[in-house]
Design a binder for these strands. Structure first.
Length: 634
DNA sequence: GTAGGGTTAG
């Protein structure tokens, strides 16, 4: 096989050694004009090598990075073979060549290969430098391989690299990203020199483990901040669901004269999505386009999500349509967005377009699809998707998918089947799953199933008032007043506090917040007066207050007064009186819209001839002309 | 040839 002109001393026998990534089948004979980069196994390299020698061409025409890639993790003999080639053909030190390949392995999807190569380098006499160690540390970080990372840290000290800031930062990042914050902190504190990267590593990793106060302290005490420092902290606030703080910091950053980059933009848009802050979202969108960020797929995905969560499905669609390259995230965001807005058919349509375009759906895609089905009562479609996800796409259902199925079945009135489904789930049902069954029990007035759900919920999530309220509503529907009173006592005895309901409505960039029963808005007098006027019209059209949602020990008249102070009613009235006719009113609410408000808002949309868009904790309700986009299926 | 942010569910 080997050319006789190549001596076996120069080239160890390789033809029978196992190789990685080698195509099966016979090795092709080297054609007379074989290109110098055509080899994918050590034996093919050997053929090429002998061919070069025969044809008198220099060895330096071999692509050396390819030599490293092909020989690094094959047999030890292939490794030595590559070294021989390097010695003869390379103009740079051998360490540099191996380092380069080590880096590509560490950056690949299989960083463990980098560790294997490092082990081989250590067994040889090849010198290790600061670059070698920083690439190995990168692989350790990705694999959370702390013991090996510690050993490499030891090597850093032993080889006298302890004053190399670049390397020390990599060591710091290794400990911190593996969750070893105590070690990272000790190292940070005794580092003789630090730079902005050092601080940024600490800030980022603190935010990752939820230590926002420490992250903030570090941020405040660092000698100079880069855009990455600001971004890391903003993204941290977004991550731990503190979007207000994120936006506050963003404004501080702008005041400090820093220019947001793509990552900053993503973080701020995510905060806008969370808060429903459409005005800021739009401004950041404009800035982002000016900077040419519209080519960035993550920026676009986050824009889509922001517009969806701010109730602007059409603008989200425009961003989506304008994308040159999309990812599964773009499609999933659109599918989930349509589900949230009650456009089940469009969600399903998007899914089929997505698969036709050759995209593989992931677990999140199916959460969106199942939501679409459950929000629209598409029972059979939902069952089909659930079966299809593991069968056709190899995606194992997670707790979210089971939750969607329980929601779907129980809303459809198949409470027994839903219960059976919960009992047979291969994962432990959580409060979302039992909560879905409870919701179905409410819709279908099943005391038995409601009690079964609460039995589990009072263990899983004992302080959540919402569940007790729902069961109490079921009792109230059946006129079981002693049980209603019992629930009230139970809540009191367990110390369950009622979550105050709030709604916000944004006008000219100012967010007005209304809290149920509270009256500290400057225009409260006028709001109440306008509500009374509206109430007259509502009554005239047959509105009857539904007091079943009021879980308080009081008479019906008092209960009505409580209902009339529900935050979304106040927000709507304020929106109506503060905007010109025809302007859509956008409201955000922290809880779900109660049945009474839902009925009232439908009528108000007709009486006032306004579109009212409410984002509640579950989904969007778009009230228009007397009906709601959820088709009362929420 | 080295180090530090980011997207869809919740």
């Amino acid at each position: 096989m080997l050319s006789p002109t190549v001596s076996s001393r120069q080239l160890p026998p390789l033809q029978n050694t196992p190789t990685q990534n080698t195509p099966k089948g016979p090795n092709p004979c080297p054609p007379s004009n074989l290109p110098a980069n055509h080899f994918s196994s050590p034996s093919q390299l050997q053929q090429l090598h002998s061919h070069l020698i025969k044809s008198g061409r220099p060895l330096s025409t071999l692509p050396l990075s390819q030599v490293a890639a092909v020989c690094a993790l094959s047999s030890p003999s292939a490794f030595s073979y590559a070294r021989q080639i390097f010695h003869r053909a390379a103009h740079q030190p051998e360490t540099v060549l191996w380092n380069s390949h080590l880096n590509s392995l560490a950056s690949s999807a299989f960083p463990a290969d980098a560790l294997a190569l490092f082990a081989r380098l250590r067994r040889s006499d090849i010198a290790v430098d600061t670059f070698t160690l920083s690439f190995v540390l990168k692989a350790c970080s990705k694999l959370s391989a702390v013991p090996l990372g510690r050993a490499v840290h030891g090597l850093v000290e032993k080889l006298g690299f302890h004053s190399d800031l670049f390397l020390l930062n990599t060591v710091l990042h290794m400990y911190a990203s593996c969750g070893e914050m105590d070690i990272a902190r000790l190292l940070f504190d005794k580092m003789p020199i630090r730079d902005v990267v050092t601080w940024n590593i600490m800030i980022t990793q603190c935010t990752k483990v939820g230590e926002m106060d420490i992250a903030r302290e570090l941020f405040d005490s660092m000698p100079e901040r880069s855009i990455r420092s600001w971004t890391a902290l903003i993204a941290g606030y977004v991550q731990c669901r503190n979007p207000r703080q994120a936006i506050h910091l963003f404004h501080e950053m702008e005041a400090a004269g820093m220019r947001p980059n793509e990552v900053t933009v993503v973080a701020v848009l995510a905060a806008c999505a969370d808060l429903g802050a459409l005005d800021l979202g739009r401004r950041v969108h404009g800035y982002s386009d000016q900077c040419g960020f519209q080519k960035n797929i993550r920026v676009c995905n986050t824009l889509i999500d922001m517009y969806i969560k701010c109730g602007c499905l059409e603008i989200a669609r425009r961003v989506f349509d304008g994308m040159e390259v999309r990812s599964v995230v773009s499609w999933s965001a659109m599918i989930g967005g349509h589900a949230m807005h009650g456009h089940g058919e469009e969600a399903l349509e998007l899914f089929s377009r997505m698969t036709q375009a050759g995209f593989q759906p992931n677990a999140v895609t199916f959460v969106g699809l199942l939501h679409a089905c459950s929000h629209m009562g598409l029972l059979e479609e939902g069952r089909r998707f659930f079966a299809s996800m593991s069968r056709d796409y190899g995606i194992s259902p997670e707790i979210e998918h089971y939750g969607c199925m329980v929601d779907l079945l129980s809303r459809a009135g198949l409470l027994e089947e839903a219960h059976e489904f919960v009992r047979n789930m291969p994962v432990e049902p959580n409060s979302v799953v039992w909560g879905a069954l409870l919701g179905g029990a409410r819709v279908h007035k099943s005391i038995k199933m409601g009690e079964e759900a609460i039995r589990h919920l009072s263990v899983l999530d004992p302080l959540n008032d919402g569940y007790y309220v729902v069961l109490s509503n079921i009792y109230a529907d059946a006129s079981r007043w002693e049980d209603v009173a019992r629930m009230r006592r139970l809540m009191r005895d367990r110390g369950v506090k009622k979550t105050p309901g709030w709604s916000t409505v944004a006008l000219d960039g100012v967010v007005h917040e209304f809290v149920a029963g509270e009256s500290d808005h400057p225009q409260v007098e006028e709001i109440y007066r306008r509500w009374e006027e509206l109430l007259e019209k509502l009554r005239h059209r047959g509105y009857v207050p539904d007091t079943s949602a009021v879980l308080l020990d009081m008479d019906d008249g008092e209960k009505e007064q409580v209902l009339y102070r529900h935050s979304e009613k106040l927000a709507v009235v304020f929106g109506l009186m503060s905007t010109p006719p025809g302007t859509p009113i956008r409201i955000m609410k922290n809880l779900r819209v109660c049945s009474d408000c839902h009925a009232a808002l439908k009528m108000i949309s007709e009486i006032a001839d306004r579109e009212i868009i409410v984002r509640d904790r579950n989904r969007f309700h778009c009230f228009r002309g007397g009906s709601c986009s959820c088709r009362d299926y929420w």
